[in-house]
């Protein structure tokens, strides 16, 4: 199939960017979206041009590195997958595809389609863990956990930290990402001990970094490649409100 690509090119964080049109020919419908970009890049290198930079790694939908905003949707038109799992059979011959980087103040563009998502790491560092050290822990079966709770925790923990929720949200809010971590620990006995401090610290960090607010548009859930539910946002809201209400003065 032949396609027209409209790709955001930006040499570095400080420089101005613009859209550049590229034509690609004879793309197999079985190729993945990133393989299509590989084909383009290989050609650009041969022609002595600068290839398009984009983040990618595992190419099986789990590392969370790939991050393209394709035709107005993070990770492209299909539900429940990442860009690397998107296959070209999903597009029509002759189609024009607009490819943009994630857009959010806390995700500055590094080059072309690559953005800096260390803001997510900072949020995790603010409390996305159970404060135990290696060793000296009880037997794994010492605390039974209801299957339903373990499953809910797993639903939340499936987050790959790709940032599609932020990219999709009209407010560039990171609530789905943050709530996935808060929710995972909120339903598990291991995480309950620090639950109040965790939710307050993580939310404060998220706000400090300049993410937008949640207005419950639910675009995040619709675009999340792991289909993480907004019910986790509600759980986080609940946790946050009750933590604010009952936590003792420092």
């Amino acid at each position: 199939m032949d396609l027209t690509l409209k790709i955001w090119r930006q040499a570095s964080a400080g420089e101005k960017g613009k859209f550049v049109d590229y034509q690609v020919q004879n793309i197999s419908t079985d190729a993945s979206f990133l393989e299509m970009l590989d084909v383009l890049n290989e050609r650009l290198v041969r022609e002595g041009e600068d290839p398009v930079a984009f983040d990618h790694d595992c190419r099986e939908g789990i590392c969370g590195a790939c991050s393209l905003y394709i035709n107005g949707r993070p990770h492209g038109p299909d539900k429940g997958i990442t860009t690397c799992q998107m296959h070209m059979r999903r597009f029509k011959d002759g189609e024009t595809i607009v490819i943009e980087p994630w857009r959010a103040k806390p995700f500055p563009v590094i080059k072309d389609l690559m953005v800096d998502r260390t803001a997510f790491d900072e949020i995790i560092q603010a409390g996305g863990y159970v404060s135990i050290n290696t060793g000296g822990v009880p037997d794994a079966n010492a605390i039974p956990i209801p299957k339903r709770d373990a499953d809910t925790a797993m639903d939340a923990a499936a987050c790959i930290g790709c940032g599609a929720c932020v990219a999709a949200c009209k407010n560039a809010s990171a609530m789905l990402f943050v709530s996935a971590k808060v929710s995972q620990f909120a339903v598990l006995p291991q995480g309950k001990i620090e639950a109040r401090e965790r939710v307050q610290n993580m939310v404060a960090k998220m706000d400090e970094l300049g993410f937008g607010n949640c207005t419950n548009t639910y675009a995040c859930e619709a675009e999340c490649p792991k289909e993480i539910s907004v019910s986790h946002i509600a759980r986080m809201n609940r946790e946050y409100l009750s933590a604010k209400l009952v936590s003792q003065k420092e």
């Binding site: 107005g72 943009e100 999709a168 548009t217 639910y218 619709a222």
Partner: peptide, 8 residues
């Protein structure tokens, strides 16, 4: 450039 409309 291409506005999304994923809101539910």
């Amino acid at each position: 450039q291409k506005k999304g409309s994923s809101e539910q």
